[in-house]
Design a protein around this nucleic acid. Structure first.
Lengths: 243, 243
DNA sequence: GCTCATAGTTGAACGCGTTCAAATCAGCGT
DNA sequence: ACGCTGATTTGAACGCGTTCAACTATGAGC
């Protein structure tokens, strides 16, 4: 164990240390001043490296956001998994996961405003809707799969299969709301979560009704189409990459 | 009439001409090269004015986007109003309006990618979700009110009242899809419109069923809450305006 | 210890959006 | 004509994200 520790703390290739240092510095400054107010020069200076060096590890300022995605997802996961042990109904599980997500993001509220600016940009490599293969996104959807899987609700297979993805999209929507939410302690967002989870739970049950089968099928076909179209995006040489 | 014309064409304060000239030049270049590839310097040069002068009329590059919104909305309206004369069902009316919207935007497909980057940014003055008072947005929702009003469908009052707004949000979603759509002639988007309009029509009828009243009420309350929250945004001194 | 490829690091330079103090212009009262 | 006021126009300058050619450190093979 001692040997192992030595290996990971001191022997880490120098670059990894520098990269981590830059990332920590950046996230700290993002938390304190927000994204736009934090310049690459300031990050480099505070981290004690040159400007060019920062770009050696993060090929653009946006890539620091990607690291942020990763980081917060890990924290969220670590908080959500144990908490889910107690909850058995779909509704309770979803509510727990959503509330914990907001908890996780809290320190970055000021910074988060910029997330959707870049995330919504079709040609951004960070657009989480575009790149199905993005590991952080996969992991995030995976968590919602757990929310669904281990609940006892009777949900038809077709819907059950799409539900993790749909809940992930829903969760992106909630984050969008939270970004705008200026109410004290983000109470408004927590209330929104409660209400929407309640509504979603009802809708899922409604959609699970055999009577609804045709409409459900039609809606799911549409969802498929949308996902499919999103896939195609990275083939497109967008305006940014035209050069 | 001659006197009037003289007044509007020649006597127009010089500034208005310059402003229009800059806007035309900008839109032309956006169409041809896209937004990012079009620099303010290039616009100014092509329009034969100085860089500073361009900023005198459009206080940032983003404000040129606002002008774009306005312009295309007017074109859309001019195309939609006559077309709606023929359609009487909600479904047909909605389909017509949506297809014409895509038609209108077509020349700007390459440029449009940037719309959602800026539009989705909470602190952007152009965020169409944030500013309920934005005249272009009001006008746009107004058009959907016409789509609903003159259709004969039996829709409960509560839903009917929210429907124009809801359809406007839907229409924003379709545009988002279209931005990503690289299929030839945007067939995919037109297909999406057909499918979603079909589905929406069914959903509206389902939601109009007396049996659905409680769920519908709950959903509409939620929509209200969302709109309300969006309103609050401009009070927030966002990170961009901190300075 | 030496060599050399590779990883890491530097700082100057570029292009862009934006700002601003100063110059110019236009119309109006005298 | 003349000066004055406000609208219009200019171009230089700033700060930022990004690029890049050149420099240095590292460590594996000899």
């Amino acid at each position: 164990m001692n040997a192992l520790r030595k290996k990971t703390t001191t022997k880490t290739v120098k670059g990894d240390q520098t990269k981590a240092l830059i990332l920590e510095t950046a996230l700290e400054m993002f938390r304190e001043r927000g994204y736009d107010q934090t310049t690459m020069r300031a990050i480099a200076e505070k981290a004690g490296v040159s400007l060019g060096n920062a770009y050696y590890y993060f090929s653009s300022k946006e890539y620091l956001i990607q690291a942020f995605y990763q980081r917060t997802h890990e924290e969220h996961l670590a908080a959500a998994l144990p908490a889910l042990e107690h909850d058995k109904t779909l509704k309770a599980r979803l509510r727990t996961v959503m509330r914990l997500k907001i908890d996780t993001l809290k320190p970055y509220h000021q910074f988060a405003g910029v997330l959707f600016k870049t995330a919504a940009h079709p040609q951004s490599p960070l657009n989480p809707f575009a790149d199905e293969s993005d590991p952080t996104r996969r992991a995030s959807i995976e968590l919602f799969a757990r929310v669904v899987e281990e609940s006892k609700a009777r949900i038809p297979k077709d819907l059950r299969a799409e539900l993790p993805y749909l809940l992930w999209v829903y969760h992106m929507g909630v984050i969008l709301f939270w970004i705008h939410d200026q109410s004290p302690k983000h109470r408004r967002t927590y209330r929104l979560v409660d209400h929407t989870v309640d509504l979603l739970d009802k809708l899922i049950h409604l959609a699970s009704n055999p009577f609804m089968r045709p409409l459900r099928k039609q809606a799911l076909r549409l969802v498929d189409e949308l996902r499919d179209a999103a896939e195609t995006i990275d083939d497109d040489p967008g305006e940014d990459s035209l050069v």
